[in-house]
């Protein structure tokens, strides 16, 4: 399992692509979907690469991204 998980609020996403180019691990890309405002929304295309670094969320101007990270103590159990 990946170290990090991003959750993108599709309705908030304006498809600006800033998160996509900011992610150092190529996790994000455009989906095939458009939201109700007509924006082509971003999604995790390679979720297994996500480290939970939050860089994508920091740059997202619409605060559409939430990030979860594997907790240290439990990471062994999960593995």
């Amino acid at each position: 399992m990946a170290k990090g998980i991003t959750v993108i609020d599709k309705e908030r996403c304006k498809g600006c692509g800033l998160c996509i180019s900011a992610c150092p691990f190529g996790v994000l890309g455009f989906s095939d979907e458009h939201n109700s405002s007509g924006y082509n929304v971003a999604t995790a295309v390679a979720p297994e690469q996500c480290t939970g670094c939050t860089i994508c969320a920091q740059i997202c101007p619409d605060v559409a991204i939430e990030v979860y990270r594997k907790e240290k103590a439990e990471s062994k159990e999960a593995a």
Partner: peptide, 17 residues
Amino acid sequence: MSPAETTIPQGYGKVFS
């Protein structure tokens, strides 16, 4: 998908919201 609809597996903590 809105964040509320997403199920996050156990062992993950929110680091950005």
